[in-house]
Amino acid sequence: MTQRLTVCLGLTFLLCSGAALSAVQNTTAVFEEPLLITSAGQNAEVQLAAVLAKRAGLDYILSKLATASDLENTKTLTLVLGASLKGLGAAGLDVDKERERVRALVTESQKRNIPILCLHLGGEARRGQQTDDLIAEFLTWAKMAIVVKSGNNDGFFTKICQAKNIPLIEVGKTADALEPLRKAFKR
């Protein structure tokens, strides 16, 4: 009996893992334009996201300090995850104030049924306790996540995405995020 139970659990786990893997590999168009791009943590990769959106031909607005009012006429909220002390200092914020700003933005987007796309483009270099805290809080709200693989070497993104059933797309380098980003939007 115990053996059967173990086999059944094992099979269930394998099926779930397979489903998660297929979610990782396939990008489906779930988002609509225009999109609002902002960072969670005032990182510089928000500029990379804007360049990728431009190259993907998407209708986007970049606002480093976006507030709830910026969600007017927005159909997708894109959060670029990663804390930069330099960026926070330049914006006159600390991590707590930044968290409050993004929290208000996420709350409003949920009220308006605006889906959230999370990006992490800084790789391993853009990890650390402060970044991880922001990821842990805001990634859970995402409808999809695109991350540079080296930032997920420890499986941190995988763990959260699997727990919340969020499709996770890993790319080798920043430029490789272009194609999944393009495919993630309905045209």
């Binding site: 990379l48 930069s84 960026g87 330049a90 270099a125």
Partner: peptide
């Protein structure tokens, strides 16, 4: 940055405060 990464170098962006 994307070009430099394509050449195999690890590099990141930092905005001038």
């Amino acid at each position: 940055l994307m070009d430099i990464q394509a050449q195999g170098f690890d590099i990141r962006l930092e905005a001038s405060p």
